[in-house]
Amino acid sequence: MVERNCREVKVREVRFLGTWDEPSDFVELTLDNPGWESYRPGQFAMLRAKHWGLELPWGRPFSISRVDAESVTFFVQVVGRGTSRLARLRPDDVVIIWGPLGNGFSAPPATPTLLLAGGMGIAPFRGYIENHPSPEFLHLLFAHRASIDFYPYLNMSEKVRAESIQERSPDDLPLIIARLEAAMDEYEGGLVLACGPTPFLRTVQAHALKKNIRAEVSLEKTMACGVGACLGCVCKDGQGKHVQVCARGPVFATADVQI
């Protein structure tokens, strides 16, 4: 596990490029490209609207969904004070952004790779698919609760083999877990990448360790700084030592982290 420095990371102020829509709980947030030439899917950025003032002193971490020459896109689900404000951004509002941060997913060429996305955990896989050297080796399995229309799934399913499965009630869970595990079993010798809610990641980790399948999980934690300084986002590594999710992750090999 390499501790990445973030020597080239700068703080930038960029414009919100979206349109003014009725606030929704699921928002595609597109900003001016802050001058990023490259990033590794699975990396994240900290966002803080300039007009927030002092009431919310922290930025908010979001997985980078995609980057092109002009813009960078995030998917945001409204869960609290910061995300509800981000969902109400107006065109040309200024957002303070620092990134790309963290390590990102492995992307070995010509390796059968299963992408397991739970809910908003689908966000990093959009850029992953777009940037992968051999997308024909990718298989996306998407588990979600809200309507599929809220997610960028359809766009992605045109590019790779993909299937989705909806949890309409907690009764659906055993079926979904069985589907996840069965899909993973096909990737012994390949690679499994997972991003989603913590219970989802625990399921993936347990099965990967049990079947000795190479897998990486992207963790989500509350963060204050995003750059490894505040020590507020730690998890335990394989040896039980606290490590920062922002600086040492957010992506961890399943053997290297306690979820």
Binding site: E55, L56, P57, C230, L231
Partner: peptide
């Protein structure tokens, strides 16, 4: 350090117990 969670954002501030 302490167990997680160990930071919380509060109005115009934050709590920490790192």
């Amino acid at each position: 350090g302490n167990p997680m969670p160990r930071v919380a954002e509060t109005p115009c501030g934050m709590l920490n117990a790192i």
